[in-house]
Amino acid sequence: MARPLALVTGATSGLGAEFAQQLGRARHDLVLVARDAARLEAKAVRLRSDFGVEVQVLAADLVTDDGVAAVAARLADPAVPVSVLVNNAGFSLVGAFEQNTVGEEAAHLRILVQTPMELAHAALPGMLARGHGRIINVSSVSAFIPRGTYGAAKAWGVSFSRFANLRYGPRGVNVTAVCPGFVHTEFHARMGADMKGVKPWMWLNAEQVVREGLADNAAGKAVSIPSRRYKVLMAASRLIPDKLAAAAGNRGR
């Protein structure tokens, strides 16, 4: 019997790499997507060796039309159907909105909103025709607080996932926005953020975030907030003024 196939974007590091790891361990074949072909192949070699699964690599820049089109075509290919799509690729801008160029903001919006929308749109017809599938959109707790255009873009992922899970869940396709807080990954270092003010208890491990996100998706939940501490914090954020919520989340995820 053929193993299920999962496609993970931003798969060479951080949460994307951990999604690939846990899905491989669960006996999914994999398609890994990122910009760096050498890092992709190195990750693929390890996964093949560790889990005995088939791993394909697809080097693509998901800020570009050509890169997105290549991944969308792979998702829509009925000959090798994709059962799980993990929309994880993304970045954040360090500067304030008024300090960034429109081009920077457009690329930011592209990777966080337009790209996952296009990839979900490519994957859904086949999943619906087969009567099963899973889509995970990696969002952030920033989606629930006023946190610049990063939070605004991540809020789209939450709203879309809630809608899509309600519409497509009864037809066998679960759609979940996974919303972590601060996670020990390369994410903040790549964006050049100063994380010294973040308390140790606010950090999560990627393994926990992915494990809980996959479990919540399998259970049919539209929104997954990993860890009890962040569930409590997000519930409390609804009760405090926007100014305080924004101050609490003014760095990173």
Rank of each mutant, 00 (worst) to 15 (best):
Gly90Phe: 05
Gly90Cys: 10
Phe91Leu: 07
Phe91Ala: 00
Phe91Gln: 05
Ser92Val: 06
Ser92Arg: 02
Leu93Lys: 08
Val94Trp: 12
Val94Ile: 13
Gly95Lys: 13
Gly95Ile: 01
Ala96Pro: 07
Glu98His: 10
Glu98Val: 12
Asn100Val: 01
Asn100Ile: 03
Thr101Phe: 03
Thr101Cys: 07
Thr101Gln: 07
Val102Gly: 03
Gly103Pro: 05
Gly103Trp: 04
Gly103Tyr: 05
Gly103Asn: 11
Gly103His: 13
Glu104Met: 02
Glu104Thr: 01
Ala106His: 03
Ala106Val: 13
Ala107His: 04
Ile111Trp: 03
Ile111Leu: 10
Gln114Ala: 14
Gln114Leu: 15
Thr115Arg: 09
Met117Pro: 02
Met117Ala: 11
Met117Val: 12
His121Trp: 09
His121Asn: 05
Leu124Ala: 08
Pro125His: 00
Gly126Ser: 07
Met127Ala: 08
Leu128Glu: 11
Leu128Met: 14
Ala129Ser: 10
Arg130His: 08
Arg130Glu: 09
Gly131Thr: 04
His132Ser: 15
His132Leu: 12
Gly133Tyr: 05
Arg134Met: 15
Arg134Pro: 11
Ile135Ala: 14
Ile135Tyr: 07
Ile136Glu: 00
Ile136Phe: 01
Asn137Gly: 03
Asn137Tyr: 01
Asn137Trp: 01
Asn137Arg: 02
Val138Asp: 11
Ser139Lys: 12
Ser139Pro: 15
Ser140Asp: 01
Ser140Thr: 05
Ser142Trp: 08
Ser142Thr: 12
Ala143Pro: 15
Phe144Ile: 07
Phe144Tyr: 15
Phe144Lys: 13
Phe144Ser: 09
Ile145Leu: 15
Arg147Met: 11
Gly148Ser: 12
Gly148Val: 02
Tyr150Asn: 00
Tyr150Thr: 05
Gly151Phe: 08
Gly151Gln: 09
Ala152Leu: 13
Ala153Ile: 01
Ala153Lys: 00
Val158Asp: 04
Ser159Val: 13
Phe160His: 15
Phe160Asp: 05
Ser161Tyr: 00
Ser161Cys: 03
Ser161Lys: 04
Ser161Phe: 00
Phe163Gln: 14
Leu166Val: 14
Leu166Ile: 09
Arg167Lys: 10
Arg167Asp: 11
Tyr168Lys: 10
Gly169Val: 02
Gly169Cys: 09
Gly169His: 10
Val173Glu: 04
Asn174Arg: 07
Asn174Val: 04
Val175Asn: 14
Val175Gly: 12
Thr176Cys: 11
Ala177Ile: 00
Ala177Phe: 00
Ala177Gln: 04
Val178Glu: 13
Cys179Phe: 09
Pro180Ser: 11
